[in-house]
């Protein structure tokens, strides 16, 4: 972790300890939430989208300013079928709008895909050596060795221990190797379905919700933070999405940094109001999750879109 980030964390922690939580609503003026508004919006999310629920988290990390049984929100086991990075490539290949790389960060949009690069469409269709190798022996062995390559260095190879016990389970009623028959994109042999636990905490310093991601691979083993960044829009990876300590759970998790959340939410609220829609604070998290979906476009969590954004005048 960068030193400046550490300093900021320490500073933020001190400010959080000595300031009182927000009690006056500034939802429309600043796009921020008071603690009570966070609870109201969270209750509404849980009731409309029951895959979300309130959690207690680690007892020693409990925040006294939040109700004990409503420390944070979580939805578990959310599928992520494709990598955000590959989706962006497809989008570019299809001639979508592309933010061109620019050192000064005042990037401009190219509306018909990336300007011609050396790579032509024909070349893209040529199979690479890797895919040839995988399709040549597309059996259980090849897939497990493929995963084996991704393994952490310090995890011992357990294959040496195989079959030391006497467990012989030949049972006609057990469906064999289910993870191979999972629904996967047909166009390649690589299993890509990751799953995510997505949680929303209340950030007392920024007075906004904050999103956290815990990723798992196909066999539900923890992903490294580096792997998680593949599922983040590449414009945001390592910039607005950082790896930090979760406020209620153990370990390091990827998080969308909340420093701009208030401003972005304020913009969304302004747009709604300009259309004559009166935004209601209990719908804050729906708007918020819709905005977060632009950062993590391939993680299919639920924020039910078919709701009315308040009393529309149209």
């Amino acid at each position: 972790m960068v030193l400046s980030q550490k300093f900021h964390e320490a500073f933020k922690g001190t400010v959080e300890r000595i300031t009182n939580p927000r009690t006056v609503s500034a939802f429309k003026e600043k796009g921020v939430l008071s603690i009570n508004e966070f609870i109201v919006a969270g209750d509404n999310l849980v009731s409309k989208c029951p895959t979300w629920s309130w959690e207690l988290g680690e007892p020693n990390k409990r925040k006294s300013y939040l109700p004990m049984e409503k420390q944070f929100l979580i939805t578990r086991n959310v599928p992520c079928l494709r990598r955000a990075a590959s989706v962006e490539e497809e989008y570019e290949a299809a001639g979508g709008e592309v933010l061109l790389e620019n050192e000064d960060n005042d990037g401009w949009l190219a509306t018909h895909g990336k300007p011609k690069e050396t790579k032509s469409d024909d070349e893209e269709n040529l199979p690479s050596m890797e895919t040839i190798e995988i399709s040549k022996n597309n059996t259980i062995q090849s897939i497990s060795s493929y995963f084996g390559g991704e393994e952490e260095d310090d995890i011992p190879d357990m294959a040496g221990y195989e079959e030391v016990d006497n467990v012989i389970e030949t049972d006609a009623a057990t469906l064999q190797s289910t993870y191979l028959v999972a629904h996967e994109p047909d166009d390649d042999n690589i299993l890509r379905t990751r799953t995510y636990d997505v949680s929303i905490t209340y950030d007392k310093y920024y007075q906004t919700p904050r999103v956290w991601l815990t990723g798992y691979d196909e066999s539900r083993m923890l992903l490294t933070p580096e792997n998680v960044l593949e599922d983040v829009s590449q414009d945001h990876a390592r910039k607005t999405v950082t790896i930090e300590d979760h406020p209620h759970l153990p370990g390091k998790h990827a998080s969308v940094h909340p420093c701009r959340h208030g401003a972005v939410m304020k913009k969304i609220i302004d747009v709604l109001m300009s259309r004559g829609v009166e935004p209601e604070v209990d719908k804050y998290l729906f708007l918020f999750l819709k905005f977060v979906a632009s950062v993590i476009p391939t993680i299919e969590y639920d924020y039910t879109l078919d709701f009315d954004l308040g009393s529309s005048s149209t």
């Binding site: 310090d154 995890i155 357990m158 221990y161 467990v167 389970e169 190797s177 066999s219 083993m221």
Partner: peptide, 21 residues
């Protein structure tokens, strides 16, 4: 009875390293 979980199709235990955290 049956029911031991396979690890990626094999009868090997799983292992996770949490040294990082």
């Amino acid at each position: 009875a049956v029911g031991w979980e396979l690890n990626r199709g094999k009868k090997v235990p799983r292992c996770i390293s949490l040294a990082k955290s």
